[in-house]
Design a protein around this nucleic acid. Structure first.
Lengths: 226, 226
DNA sequence: CAACTACTCAAACGAGGAGTAGAGTAGCAG
DNA sequence: CTGCTACTCTACTCCTCGTTTGAGTAGTTG
């Protein structure tokens, strides 16, 4: 029982702060940030993550292990694939908090402007619910099909961004199109909205993306395939 | 105008994620976590921070520069001292989120148990407000005097932990003592409560600490000296 | 302006992280 | 069992970070 003797000591204090810093270290690499963003869409295999993040499988594997060691990511085996997911909803809250702090300060703000383009007017979640109920809007999910299958806004149409131009006819006429994607730092819905407007459609993006919708407790569905 | 051409490109995406990771890097060191915790109590000089964190002034200076570069900390000159503070309240929210995620997972949980001792029953902020109003409790701030001066719970008594034993007589008799300190990962209030109970006083700690009280919008005061 | 206080900078070194390539392993399909 | 897919491990290089030490600078005090 060395426990009682250690309370309040400098050694124990350092260990505690170092333990918190372990989580900080997990957040200290751009590829890992991107992996967390991808994992917020649903569970995925190492290979799928590597190809989405455009890194080698070996590197993705190493980064995923780092995230697991820090407790941010959990994994389960499914046949010969290993599916990773965020350990719990608090992890997404942490990521959101990190990006909030980063994006209002300095370099990240400029990088976001460069990646996302000029800010567009967004529809709030509450407004979207009301407009869909009134038949005034259709919701389009621009993410890749497998992310749609892993979970999406109830009633949304899946049209991955690369297919959007060719599938414009599938969108019901005379209603506004509300597009969404992975989250506030995903370029797909700004790009989709720009494309729709060029095609003469009324279109806006949803504020944030699928993870925020789900965490707000709003209705979601998931497809069969995983 | 290269801007429009960059939207959605991999290069821009990597820059954005790297920019977020810069903030992660700032959180990737135990000393910097401790400095953020100290800065949440109010603005402080480099030397004061170094001595509280038990590191050299040169090292504290280097870490504070890293925090400033990441945008988490701001500084101003006052005579020949340089006073640092958290850049804004979101930074504390980020720190809180980091510790929440870390402490419910793995290593940090054990480190916290070792540093803080067995969990004690805490008084909620709402309950404390009610009990003080009813004259049933007295609030004691166990932090060093300068942190009390930089800001404290309105009506609290300042008795730094090392002086508590000698100053027991200053506490009004027959009411419960509620002790608080820097936050949920500060060992002073658990130690203070244990000391008070050994001295035969009814005592509990306040949930969390001064930063959370202030951010909850509850009444605070600050002394003249800075 | 001399001496002092408070802080920063430069150099140096060890430790650990990022990334790549290639070999190795677990589970499945035939 | 063979071959395949999906993932992990090892070894290696390069680079960045943490820390100490000693010198340097801004501002203040007498």
């Amino acid at each position: 029982m060395t426990e009682a003797a250690e309370i309040g000591t400098r050694a124990a204090k350092n260990e505690l702060h170092d333990a918190f810093a372990q989580v900080g270290k997990a957040l200290a690499n751009g590829h890992r940030i991107e992996l967390l963003d991808l994992l917020a869409q649903g569970e995925r295999s190492v290979e799928a993550l590597a190809s989405r993040a455009e890194i080698s499988v070996a590197l993705a594997s190493a980064h995923l292990q780092a995230l697991r060691r820090a407790g941010l990511v959990a994994a389960r085996r499914d046949g010969n694939r290993i599916l990773h997911r965020l350990a719990d909803d608090d992890v997404y809250a942490l990521l959101a908090s990190l990006r909030t702090v980063a994006s209002r300060l300095g370099e990240a703000e400029r990088a976001a402007a460069r990646f996302l383009g000029a800010p567009q007017e967004a529809v709030s979640r509450a407004e979207l619910v009301a407009r869909v109920r009134a038949g005034e809007a259709v919701v389009v999910d621009l993410r890749p099909a497998d992310e749609f299958d892993a979970g999406h806004i109830a009633g949304a149409l899946s049209i991955p961004l690369p297919e959007l131009e060719a599938r414009l006819a599938e969108l019901p006429p005379d209603v506004e199109v509300v597009a969404y994607c992975r989250g506030p730092y995903c370029a797909m819905s700004p790009q989709g909205v720009a494309l729709l407007e060029r095609a003469g459609r009324r279109a806006r993006r949803l504020e944030d993306g699928y993870p925020e919708w789900r965490l707000a407790g709003l209705p979601v569905e998931s497809g069969g395939a995983r």
